[in-house]
Computed example of a mutant assay.
Amino acid sequence: MSDFKLLIIGGGLSAINAYQLSLRYNIRPLIIDDNVISASHVAAGMLNPLTGRNLSKTWLCDNVFPFAHSYYKSCENFYGNKFLYSLPIYHLFRDEAEENDIYAKSADPNYRHLISTDSELRNSLPAYLKENSKGAFFRQGGFIDINNLLNQAKQHAKNNCNYLNESFNWNDLKLLNGKVEYKGKDYNAILDCTGIKVSDNPYFSKLPVMSNKGEILGLKGKLSGHSDYLYHKKIFIFKHPDGLLRVGSTYSNTDKSTQNTQAAVDFLIEKANAIMPDNYIISKHWNGFRPTTPDRRPIVGQHPKHKNLFILNGMGSKGATLSPFFAFQLIRDMLYKSPVNELVKPNRFF
């Protein structure tokens, strides 16, 4: 173990990924977490390489997806538990124009490693979808059982005296030359992974991190017997290890309430029926607030003035894929001055 001590503030996926990668680099991490339910606790953990209305490759796709798959497998080996569920995504075409576009992309060298129109894959679809839908299969898809990973990592941190369950008080923080002091103890660096609570941090309070509310349902239905694919058409459906179908998600920049909404239920059930008609039974309903930014890029890196203060935030709806990659870049920046991607540095907002 090195002498480098890192104070990690937060308990969501970004904080846990930073903790995990700190261990890989023999850093001595301490997590301070108020254990309040965050977006990570209710996130579906989707891995989807093609996103947006035009189904373009997600940003940095060819870098972040191989890294994410490798990283989560290493977490499985470390904890002896399963977190990564690699599944083909069966995307149902919206219309003929999208069908033509996807078939064209399947022949494009930049896309063909991600798209399959293999008839063999169709043969194992549920009978209704095989007979009544047109679609293509996206590779490198799947989902992460985020709650399981969070629980395993936090228990490991507790067992090794690397975890404090308490609220962080920014007034007790002292940023000194070459070190960080908090409640009388010294650290080499502090990392803010607080999501939408970053506004509580006086050093990063002006960052334009916005909350985007998402709601997800846990359903029982016919697709509960089919765990071989992740189904997608405007929303996603897949079978979670808890036995329920995850169906989501909604997106709202205006709804700031912490309540579940009937509007979300109506929307998600309607879209679920467009994929597979069924008399769905609602067992669970969750909501959370994703941290997003105006330019849809994360905020990762060193404070422009305080060189021992770092941030890992703003992953939006793509935290399962972006967070490991940028946590890795950030840890290497702390240790070796290996710079993070210029497009995500916080100084773009200062």
Score class of each variant (00 low, 15 high):
residue 8 I to Q: 09
residue 15 A to P: 04
residue 16 I to Q: 08
residue 20 Q to I: 07
residue 21 L to G: 00
residue 32 I to S: 01
residue 37 I to F: 15
residue 37 I to Q: 12
residue 40 S to C: 14
residue 42 V to W: 04
residue 44 A to N: 08
residue 45 G to P: 08
residue 47 L to M: 09
residue 51 T to D: 08
residue 53 R to L: 14
residue 57 K to G: 11
residue 60 L to M: 09
residue 63 N to D: 01
residue 64 V to T: 12
residue 66 P to L: 02
residue 66 P to Q: 00
residue 74 S to M: 01
residue 75 C to R: 05
residue 77 N to L: 14
residue 79 Y to K: 03
residue 83 F to I: 03
residue 85 Y to M: 13
residue 87 L to P: 03
residue 88 P to V: 03
residue 89 I to P: 10
residue 92 L to E: 14
residue 93 F to G: 13
residue 95 D to M: 06
residue 107 A to S: 02
residue 111 Y to N: 13
residue 113 H to S: 09
residue 114 L to K: 09
residue 116 S to M: 11
residue 118 D to Y: 03
residue 123 N to V: 11
residue 124 S to F: 06
residue 124 S to R: 15
residue 124 S to A: 13
residue 124 S to P: 12
residue 125 L to F: 12
residue 131 E to F: 11
residue 133 S to M: 05
residue 133 S to I: 07
residue 138 F to H: 06
residue 139 R to V: 03
residue 140 Q to T: 03
residue 140 Q to P: 01
residue 145 D to Q: 07
residue 152 Q to H: 08
residue 153 A to Y: 00
residue 157 A to M: 08
residue 161 C to D: 15
residue 163 Y to A: 06
residue 165 N to R: 06
residue 175 L to T: 03
residue 176 L to I: 08
residue 187 Y to T: 13
residue 188 N to T: 04
residue 190 I to F: 14
residue 193 C to A: 04
residue 193 C to R: 04
residue 194 T to D: 00
residue 199 S to P: 04
residue 204 F to Q: 15
residue 206 K to M: 05
residue 207 L to Y: 11
residue 216 I to L: 13
residue 221 G to K: 07
residue 222 K to D: 11
residue 222 K to L: 11
residue 222 K to A: 15
residue 224 S to E: 08
residue 226 H to K: 07
residue 227 S to M: 13
residue 230 L to T: 12
residue 237 I to H: 01
residue 238 F to D: 00
residue 239 K to W: 01
residue 241 P to C: 14
residue 242 D to R: 02
residue 247 V to R: 11
residue 252 S to M: 04
residue 252 S to I: 02
residue 271 K to S: 11
residue 274 A to V: 00
residue 274 A to W: 01
residue 275 I to M: 05
residue 280 Y to N: 03
residue 286 W to F: 14
residue 291 P to R: 14
residue 295 D to Q: 10
residue 295 D to L: 12
residue 301 G to V: 04
residue 308 N to I: 00
residue 310 F to W: 09
residue 312 L to I: 13
residue 318 K to R: 12
residue 320 A to K: 03
residue 325 F to G: 04
residue 327 A to V: 06
residue 329 Q to Y: 06
residue 330 L to Y: 04
residue 334 M to S: 06
residue 342 E to R: 14
residue 343 L to F: 11
residue 344 V to N: 03
residue 345 K to V: 12
residue 345 K to F: 07
residue 346 P to Q: 10
residue 347 N to C: 10
residue 350 F to Y: 15
